[in-house]
Write a protein that binds this DNA or RNA. Sequence first.
DNA 1: TGATCCCGCCAACGT
DNA 2: ACGTTGGCGGGATCA
Length: 829
Amino acid sequence: RSILKTPLKQAATSHSVLTEIQPECQPLTTPPKPKEILPADPWTPTSNLKMLISAASPEIRSREQRRELSNNAGELLQAKHCLQEHLSGDEYEKSQPSRKEKSLGLLCHKFLARYPDYPSTAENNYICLDEVAEELNVERRRIYDIVNVLESLHMVSRLAKNRYAWHGRHNLSKTLQALKKVGEDNKYTQQIQMIKKREYEHEFDFDGERNEEMARSFGSNEHSEMSFVELPGMEFRAASVNSRKDKSLRVMSQKFVMLFLVSTPQIVSLEVAAKILIGEDQLEDLDKSKFKTKIRRLYDIANVLSSLELIKKVHVTEERGRKPAFKWTGPEVSPNIQDTKLEITSTTCPPPISESIPSKEQCSKNLFPSRGKQNFTRHPSLIKLVKSIENDRRKIQSAPTSPVKISASTDQNLSAFPSKMAQDPAIATHQLEGQSKKAKEMKMKLSRSALECNLSSPEVVLKPEPPRTVAPSQQPAVTQPLGVCPPSHSSVSPVILPHTHSGVSYAIYLHPSQAHTVTTYSPSFMLQPLPRANVTGIKSINSKVVNKLTTEEGDNQIATDDPTKSLTAKERPTAKSETSSQRCLKRSQALEENNIIKRYRSDEESLNTSLTFFPSGYLIPLTQCTHGNKAGFSDEEKAGICSLQHTTYSSPIAGVIPMTASELKAVNIPAFHITPLNIMLSPTSIAAAPVLSNSCLNSSNTSSAPNPSSSVLNFTLQHVGLIPAGVQVPANPVLQHMPVSSQPENVSRSSENMNLQEEKVSKKIYCNSLTVPCVPKEAQVPQTVTENFFRTPGGPNTVPPLSANSDGTNTISQGTLYIPQRKLEVSED
DNA sequence: TGATCCCGCCAACGT
DNA sequence: ACGTTGGCGGGATCA
């Protein structure tokens, strides 16, 4: 980077613009017509502001904003109107008064308002940066800021230049879990403690000693280079996009989030965050300017996260005074699942999507079956290919004229509306959605809770990992790998997480040097369980048929999607009735994205290998298929049915693991293990299955993944006898070790109607199953308790002396650890 | 005044 | 060579 060339003038310029525009127009003079005009112009910043405020969660966003609103709004309005009088619409729009109105947070709200939190799979939820920037009236640069952090949460992913795919919050829980895990691996908790401690001891004194310590703690794990945590399925993009540059925002954002997830009072001060982030990069640079810059960036990130309502600003009062900090207000992430990690963790995912989760993962797997880094290597070309194909496709679609349109159709909601116009409605929608969303979530939680079986507060996440779908089968896989890999490995370079369908799998990009590490992990993990054959892997590579089918479905689905429903769109995902359709949509969408890849693969691997189905003993594909067939044949129906059935029938245990035959081979899996699914299924069904699995990307569809509820049920049934009730134990461990005897048939009969009931039942059962005498992991339970206990803020007294943590062991990190200074008075303004 | 953080230059990238 | 990304930090606003 160059040195300093300060373009100071700029600022002046911008201002001058304003001034120029409204030179004479004194706000004072301003005619009080505002109101009249306002209604007409939905776009007034003020209106937006209002909307936003109202939309914002009451608790969090609060009064300050309101106040602001009342105060500033008026002024702004006046100014605006004044301008309006003198300027044409465009010009008028351009002039934006208060700095606040230009805030990233507000912009982000607008941005978010355009897309549903849980996009139905309407195939293309594409985001064109240019369009967005234009519509939102901001320079593209700002959009990048938003998109980058959204990308860090996997809420969007880059498809191509200028193009992103919107995933909404479907991936959120998984992402958070992954991040949490990585954060734990990175020992962030300890780092935080250390920093605080140091601060406490002697305020700033950047010197050797301190640095040394820091270095030690930080340096202890080299992972510092860890860069981007990814979820399976989104890899390629990253691979291509992320060249080396993925440095800051994206990564920073993830790290920032990690800090929240690992710290016990989920409050992180900017200062600490900045230090940690800097520390990782370069231990010594205590350089003030660097620190400052970091803080600036953190504010940017924080603004976006705030808009997402994942955090909120608070102030921590300490000896030195109050420091700006942020508190995590996002979903609880299931407690660390140490080794078990991934797997079921997905449970956390509260809302609608929970069912989809499994599928997603699977999807991702399908796309990129298990690939560590190594796979990437060979992908570049693939990626390009994919991209080019996609681009072409897009062009074709959009070419006709309206890229916008496409997007509109894509996002059910707002997007349908033309830009500006959409804003207000969008926001409103957003708002509604938010509320409804919550309600939904609650519902979902309840229903899904089967998985979670969370006795305590609902808010507390579900610690017990429900066997979630595939989990069981995979767990073993996952677990084993972990076991195999020394923890050290993980701690150092959090790399990997096998894809557990259900679990949180994530991939971390490492620097080349570290790459090999990643490589270590491999599909084999997944395979391990195979011996039992309880894992069902479906590798859908093949494709032709599948793809076609899928595509068709997708199209149909799309057609189905009614723009008018836009408002409801967000909620839609939740709605059970719609589920099937949604799934379909999603599926199609996923397909779209994945198709290419698949094709490519098919080409590459052509044939035989391509579709390898790995039925597990428990898998009940036949049933599903059968039903599907029975049901009918319209693509849509089929799709829907299949998905449902799929969900319903597939045994939880049997996860569907997408992998290529080649992969399997690589793993040394006995050939016999690989059973082409088709054998069991009718062509139609076959197609459907793979498709489903693929679609998962953001979808809620359960596709290949067994439906949680059913899964649970199945699982439960299978294991109930085996598992005694008693102590509450993380499901994972237990499940993992449990023998799986399945009787899919029992469960198999299902109907949509059944779902609820089933869920309930399953929940119960599930809970029971969870309750297991055999406590796999030592203190898991206690831990949890502890955490909760301590979680309660407020008790400064409870704070143990720092010294305790000197070792830097987990113990400390457990959250029990309080730092002396912290009286933690969190104040919201 | 310190906390926030907008703005936009310009370099690294991608095509 | 040009368009896209996005690091970066000055300095304007806000509180």
